[in-house]
Design a protein around this nucleic acid. Sequence first.
DNA 1: CACATATCAGTCAGACTGAGATTT
DNA 2: CAAATCTCAGTCAGACTGATATGT
Lengths: 160, 160
Amino acid sequence: MIAPDVQALAERGWPGELGLPESIGFLTRLARLVMLTERVFSGIAERHRISFDDYLVLATTGRAAPATSPSQLCRILGRTSGGMTLTLDRLEQAGWLRRSPDPSDRRRVLVRLTPSGRRLSERVNRALHEWEHGVVPAGEAEELGALVDRLLEVVGRSGS
Amino acid sequence: MIAPDVQALAERGWPGELGLPESIGFLTRLARLVMLTERVFSGIAERHRISFDDYLVLATTGRAAPATSPSQLCRILGRTSGGMTLTLDRLEQAGWLRRSPDPSDRRRVLVRLTPSGRRLSERVNRALHEWEHGVVPAGEAEELGALVDRLLEVVGRSGS
DNA sequence: CACATATCAGTCAGACTGAGATTT
DNA sequence: CAAATCTCAGTCAGACTGATATGT
């Protein structure tokens, strides 16, 4: 059996079926939103032969022009340094980024995108944008963004 | 190096650092919300020695009283049958659920929680609720739920 | 026989921990 | 010497695919 696709998940009578508390509350809906969004984003990235998590590494590196470091990537993406080493190995192996010693602090390593890594990152970036434009009516982008901010603020209250 | 905790992620100047498109758009914020929420939920479940994904299997099984089947779980949770077999093996091994043959259709297997599985599921459930009550002011629960529904509707437009 | 259900075997991507090297 | 940065080795949870057995 093959896993049901995103659309199936979106359509099913989820809240009741998924056994989350009260089956109608904030929590259940938020869990569903997370699951659905995750699948949408992963699906878009994977159409370009890269996982969404790996794309985030490329995108973060690309933004930190001209270069960043493994530890900075760890901090931004919430990963361990051992795990990041493996991820960078993989992405470097694929030809999407390269590492070089930092001349000003030789404990450090500089990470930067290769042209092909930059192109890939931009392709996925574009695809994500196209998705956004496909689902968010032009007039509502602002409002929906503010709405997500509100949720971010709420969820961010955790652990404090 | 150890991975930064949720709070660190919530506080950092994420949108700019994370190289997502336009760094201020709906997309970036949504990605951040997903990442943050994922970590909060996983953290809560793991404090009870279970992954959030495994908890979802228990919760879904518990809701489908008195029993459900592996294929039903696959459909609801969007998983493959091979993977679900392994997950059920693990949860059965831990004593949280058990499988028995379905007398009415002997191709099928019935999955039901054990008392200990039910207790665990309820404990996590309770912890999730407590989290919700901690971050959502009583008067806003309704409104925030509706707000998540709106986003669900938007993201659900994908793949259609 | 075609279809549905579940499992098994094999494989794999990907992440973590802990120790160690290097440099500041 | 303490702290920071990165890498390596070992390990592991967890998911997938494809083939198979069984029952409808």
